[in-house]
Design a protein around this nucleic acid. Structure first.
Lengths: 203, 203
DNA sequence: CCAATTACGCTACGATACGTAGCGTAGCGT
DNA sequence: ACGCTACGCTACGTATCGTAGCGTAATTGG
């Protein structure tokens, strides 16, 4: 008697790694929406996905790394921002991206928690900085350099500073004013970004 | 045979509530510094403080509420900011206070975690907003109104917006650039605040 | 001065999740 | 046919949670 397969897959076990990863991704995403990050457990993910708990532990050392890999890492890897033709246009596009990632329905639930976990896990914090922060900073730098070339700005604001300001503010806004819709938030972030880059021009 | 007192207090149990609270405060503060918020457990606090676990649960329903009460609540209740005589001076004082609270050695460790916990606990989130955010916002509003009266500003920026921007940015800076010392961070927050309030003046 | 009340300590649970070990087996490459 | 890898499954031991029940010291009020 062959093993009875609880997942009900007709041809027994789903082929190999890929199908397993997809099941995990789905389970994590669903559970994040249903119960949030705090109450998300490895055992819960195992049960929902049909993947054995031990298999999950073979891939990731912690819940945080799992969520980071499955959810954030994929959303953070985006192409460079298109040239919108003007500083204002570029800043708007940048704000939209930041808000969508960090203050979207999923992002605002998991970001503070991931940060908390990373605060007591040096390795995770380094991955967080490397794959998420560094990429984003470079994209901001590109936008600023473009504006300097166009003559819209005398010289570029430090991209890292601007990044911290925009991400931090977006996150805090989403937290303190959950009623604010994404469009309004995007406008506020755009305003802030313009205030920062304009500081160079007006004095 | 009287109860053997593990705490070794000569006169048996320490008087009553007050001494107990102090022991808890000390234990929580020490453990936060030693192991961080994540690894802080009620049982650990009980062991360190000599207060029974059940007594802790009688006071607070969760770790988050305990930390909030013992650590944050006391640091957040500060007198209104003195009038520094100028917009610049006021903003500097404001930045210093925000940085000290949110991005100080203790604050940067517990803030994201408390936010994470509050995200899945409506009651805690409300207390967080009420006793921490509302007070801070009012203090910012006072500073802004003062400047309007002085003629330094044509009209006040929304205090809530400024608050989100400053706290969020300070937090994110502290997170992404832990090497940055408190003084440098304070300067960056001051710059940001000036950029925001100046936006009204320069157009 | 003697109840009644309050606040606390202590032991003992059941439940949940953690993270690991050991064994068996299906797919894949050579 | 062989080995390798990834996975499933069961079964642990541990940590922490949050609660129940009982006893006792301090506090309060008549």
């Amino acid at each position: 008697m062959a093993r009875s397969n609880k997942r009900g897959a007709v041809a027994g076990r789903p082929a190999r790694g890929q199908a397993t990863t997809e099941a995990l991704h789905r389970a994590v995403q669903e559970l994040l929406e249903e119960v949030g990050y705090r109450a998300l457990t490895i055992e819960g993910v195992a049960a929902r996905s049909g993947v054995a708990k031990t298999s999950i532990y073979r891939r990731w050392p912690s819940k945080a790394e799992m969520v980071f890999d499955l959810i954030l890492h994929s959303s953070a890897e985006l192409p460079a921002l298109d040239d919108q033709g003007s500083l204002t246009g570029d800043i708007e596009a940048l704000s939209a991206r930041i808000v969508a990632l960090v203050a979207g329905p999923l992002g605002r639930r998991i970001f503070p928690c991931l940060i908390c976990d990373a605060a007591s896990d040096r390795g995770l914090m380094q991955r967080f900085r490397a794959t998420f922060v560094a990429d984003g900073r470079d994209q901001i730098a590109q936008v600023l350099e473009r504006s300097v070339r166009r003559g819209d700005l005398p010289d570029a604001t430090a991209a890292a500073d601007l990044q911290s300001a925009l991400i931090g503010t977006a996150l805090m806004f989403a937290l303190l004013h959950p009623d604010l819709d994404e469009g309004a938030l995007r406008d506020k972030i755009t305003d802030l970004a313009m205030a920062v880059v304009n500081q160079r021009r007006n004095h």
